[in-house]
Design a protein around this nucleic acid. Structure first.
Length: 294
DNA sequence: AAAAGACCCAACCGCTCCCGG
DNA sequence: GCCGGGAGCGGTTGGGTCTTT
């Protein structure tokens, strides 16, 4: 038994908004506000639209100070960093980009930014003759989705300061997520098997059985499968993953194809950024999570 | 010039969250 | 504490526009 719909879908108008409808909605909200009730709003104005549709139209198009048009390199940078940090939380990402809407950013990511990154990756693979099976970006996304599902309460800033745990450089959020997500092979062995091949071509690092199921699915999984006796977790894997991301984002090449300036800063080999608690590197993310937690 | 395919984006849908009664 | 309804969110879709053949 589903819940009652917010309006009678057969009686309200759907599809693109006319200039008249826009004008009605805009002038009413500018005069009286939304009144805290979008569902009742169309009736008050005399619009034959669903309240949700009115809300969307206002937020994504009619609201003042909405920015349309091309995204700047700085905006690309912010979107990318936040996407890698928190995944497809478009409303949170939008909150960091004044004038941009979540819908806008979502569309921009899906239609352009992702392709821009993946396209560059393909270009580099062609040049190198490399045949990596799937993009680090997509794997990273999957990884983050799984992470969020499994440990939604986890503080993403919890581990990145520990350089004993992380002798190599990697963005703290990635490291945090990787080390927490210790059973990633168990969850989706197919998705991650090529990662094994990068760091261990004969596949010996994996404890996977022939049917693709990892038997090391216990609380000590990280220790048993991904850490050696010194407590280091699959660093070959992580560093090759990092290298792949570096390459993807142009951090290690000088070919001039780095379309998005600055994005490689926090995972570059620049000695200036070795201290992960440096506020310069993490100010944005820290502020973000602070805001989000509030 | 026209057809086909690719791209883009506004809008919709269905779900969860949140809050008031 | 429970329930119902509105708000908000993210994924998806439909159709207009642009590009390629």
């Amino acid at each position: 038994m589903g819940r009652a719909p917010c309006c009678d879908k057969t009686k309200v108008k759907k599809g693109p908004w006319s200039p008249e409808e826009d004008a009605k909605l805009k002038s009413y909200i500018e005069k009286y506000g939304t009144g805290g009730n979008w569902i009742a709003l169309p009736q008050k104005i005399g619009l034959n639209r669903c309240g949700k549709s009115c809300r969307l139209r206002w937020l994504n198009y009619l609201r003042p100070n909405i920015k349309h048009g091309d995204f700047t390199a700085e905006e690309d940078n912010i979107i990318l960093n936040l996407y890698i940090s928190i995944g497809s939380r478009w409303s949170i990402i939008a909150a960091q980009l004044p004038g941009r809407t979540d819908n806008d950013i979502k569309n921009y990511w899906n239609t352009r930014l992702k392709k821009k990154l993946l396209g560059k990756r393909r270009q580099q693979e062609d040049l190198n003759g490399s045949t990596l099976s799937s993009s680090a970006l997509e794997r990273l996304q999957l990884h983050m989705q799984l992470q969020c599902q499994q440990q939604p309460q986890q503080n993403p800033l919890s581990l990145f300061n520990n350089q004993t745990l992380w002798p190599h450089k990697l963005h703290p959020f990635l490291q945090d997520r990787l080390i927490q997500h210790n059973d990633f092979q168990t969850i989706n062995p197919i998705q991650f098997e090529d990662l094994d091949q990068i760091s261990s071509p004969n596949g010996s690092a994996s404890s996977e059985t022939s049917n693709g199921v990892d038997n090391n699915n216990d609380d000590n999984n990280m220790m048993s499968t991904n850490m050696d006796s010194n407590g280091y977790m699959g660093m070959e894997r992580i560093s090759s993953f990092q290298a792949e991301l570096d390459q993807l984002l142009g951090g290690n090449d000088n070919s001039g194809v780095n379309e998005i300036e600055g994005i490689s800063g926090w995972w570059s080999n620049d000695s200036k950024s070795t201290n992960w608690d440096a506020s310069t590197n993490l100010q944005t993310e820290s502020a973000l999570y602070q805001n989000y937690a509030n």
